[in-house]
């Protein structure tokens, strides 16, 4: 599914790729691999590099060194035109939701399907059903600004799973949810994982991790400190 081999990442200061403009390296020598259908918690202190690692995984940046293979594609060397198809197989729940403010909840969730060119009839059925499942059937036409933080997060979650992605990434997905909603979200992630989706969830919520024990990637100072050694999947 995915393989990191001595991956390093540094951001460019001015958007120009020259040695002089390069910032400090934020990830160093990251190496690990996950099989399809794996689940990992991603933990570490703020600023440790969790978000940068996720950005590499959802192809917002490419590694500046090392080799990252995602679903069989070498991300560092693949041509730009090869990346959109890969992105469509990755669902992301952002910490700040990243919803489009001028679109309704329905249109936000439908967006990945429309980008992928799915038939409109299927889109209507799938999106309606998923929004009902996350408890937003009353808010199909509501814009994000009129929704509460928790409701916006549920829209963001629905958008991330609507395409049944092969890889699901979440950055603090329970931050705006109450305990009941957080549990419901974990059930969704588990269900996605059970049908073969690889899931990586970055969180500070140790209670949540304790309630749902699974292998964890620990990151500190831009280095992968340790993996707890257990194999892919849930710990019962």
């Amino acid at each position: 599914m995915l393989r990191f081999e001595a991956v390093g990442l540094r951001y460019e200061r001015s958007g120009v790729r020259t040695d002089a403009s390069a910032g400090p390296e934020v990830l160093h020598d990251i190496s690990f691999h996950l099989r399809p259908g794996a689940f990992r918690w991603l933990m570490g202190p703020s600023g440790a590099g969790k978000t940068s690692l996720l950005r590499l995984l959802y192809l917002a940046v490419r590694p500046t060194r090392g080799r990252l293979t995602l679903m069989g594609t070498d991300v560092a060397t693949a041509p730009r035109r090869a990346l959109p198809v890969l992105r469509r197989r990755i669902g992301v729940v952002f910490q700040d939701f990243r919803l489009l403010p001028h679109l309704s909840a329905f249109d936000n969730v439908a967006l990945p399907l429309r980008i992928a060119g799915r038939p409109e009839g299927q889109i209507r059925a799938d999106v309606g059903e998923l929004l009902r499942w996350v408890g937003l059937s009353q808010h199909l036409d509501t814009r994000p600004a009129e929704l509460s933080g928790g409701e916006q997060q549920r829209v963001a979650i629905a958008r991330s799973v609507i395409t049944r992605p092969a890889l699901l990434l979440a950055d603090e997905p329970t931050g705006n949810l109450d305990d009941g909603q957080a549990e419901r979200l974990m059930q969704l992630f588990k269900e996605m994982n059970r049908i073969g989706t690889t899931v990586i969830v970055a969180t500070h919520n140790e209670m949540l991790v304790e309630r749902h024990p699974a292998p964890t990637l620990h990151i500190a100072n831009g280095r992968l400190a340790a993996s707890d050694g257990r194999d892919d999947g849930w710990v019962s």
């Binding site: 959802y58 192809l59 917002a60 730009r80 035109r81 959109p84 198809v85 890969l86 992105r87 469509r88 992301v92 990243r98 489009l100 001028h102 967006l111 990945p112 980008i115 992928a116 958008r159």
Partner: peptide, 15 residues
Amino acid sequence: EAIEIVHGLGATDAY
């Protein structure tokens, strides 16, 4: 921002 979101969801340059 909207372009980056749509791009991140897998929209091609042509789209």
